[in-house]
């Protein structure tokens, strides 16, 4: 399993260079059956990362570019009257894909955002009174521009809570950027990639990861972390119980990726920033990161 995962990482690395931590985090999110939120400035390679991942994992990708005039029906689909059969026929929207790439999600109005997020949360969508289930590996990668940019509708906290992990990519270093400039076009590279894994493999991995042992001591550590976040002076209302559950799942996935049979405090510490930053009510990512660090350093490891 680990080998296969490494192959995936290698494949993706060929296209997305210098972003291995972010890449691992997104894989971890995928294995933990969560949804991923990538937040960074435009042009940092968010879309490239998402596309590459989808291609390597052999999933079918649907991309939705969120704009300010996007309507819920544009995502979910709608019923159209078919003249031949004299019936309404449902035309599924782009959300009915295994991997949905929701680009610049915070550019759409809240109504549209919530349509997507509801589908993410429930694993199903209700359209015209009928409920449609999502395909089985269902993975949403949403990208988001930082709030301070013009023309954005920031996602409310409740919506942010539905993303398991949030990552940012950051500027590449000089060498990486040089490679990007001199090398082949990234988009072309994606087309050349071969899938390294099938959706069935992914499902199996998800099952396996869920079985990774979480000991009593580790549960206590998790609870302590979550609890500490709740009683910090400036941490808003702290991490929700759902966040605690997500944290546990993500840690299991991380431990699984490390090839371990049990979750270690190190696993929790590795995924904690990704899980916690967007959930702690804080103005900027930097202060969120500081807060996460503060929590991690305040809670002793058992």
């Amino acid at each position: 399993m680990k080998k296969r995962l490494d192959r995936v990482v290698d494949q993706v690395k060929r296209v997305v260079i210098g972003k291995e931590p972010a890449l691992r985090m997104s894989l971890c999110c995928l294995i933990a059956k969560g949804h991923l939120l990538i937040e960074d400035l435009p042009g940092m390679g968010k879309t490239t990362l998402a596309r590459t991942l989808a291609k390597v994992l052999g999933m079918d990708v649907r991309r939705i570019q969120f704009t300010s005039d996007l309507l819920p029906a544009d995502i979910l689909g709608c019923s159209i009257f078919d003249k031949q059969s004299q019936q309404f026929v449902f035309r599924p929207g782009p959300i009915f894909g295994q991997m949905v790439l929701a680009d610049e999600i915070n550019r759409a109005p809240p109504k549209t955002q919530s349509a997507l997020l509801e589908a993410m949360e429930e694993g199903q969508a209700s359209i015209d009174g009928t409920t449609y289930a999502m395909p089985h590996p269902f993975f949403v990668i949403a990208t988001q521009n930082p709030h301070h940019l013009v023309g954005t509708y920031p996602l409310p906290e409740s919506q942010l809570d539905r993303f398991l992990i949030r990552i940012d990519l950051g500027f590449p270093d000089r060498e990486t950027e040089r490679e990007m400039l001199t090398g082949v076009n990234r988009r072309d590279l994606i087309n050349d990639l071969e899938p390294a894994m099938s959706p069935a493999d992914l499902s199996a991995m998800q099952e396996e990861a869920a079985k990774v042992h979480v000991s009593q001591a580790l549960t206590n550590y998790l609870l302590d972390l979550v609890n500490h976040s709740r009683c910090m002076a400036d941490g808003g209302s702290g991490l929700s119980p759902r966040a605690g559950m997500f944290l546990c799942r993500a840690s299991q996935a991380w431990a699984f990726m490390e090839g371990r049979e049990m979750v270690m405090p190190e696993d929790v510490q590795a995924v904690f920033p990704g899980v916690a930053i967007h959930r702690l009510r804080s103005g900027t990512v930097a202060s969120g990161m500081a807060m996460v660090e503060q929590i991690l350093k305040a809670v002793p490891v058992p």
Partner: peptide
């Protein structure tokens, strides 16, 4: 209140 843990 289990050993070593904290609750609110």
């Amino acid at each position: 209140l289990p050993a070593g843990s904290h609750r609110s």
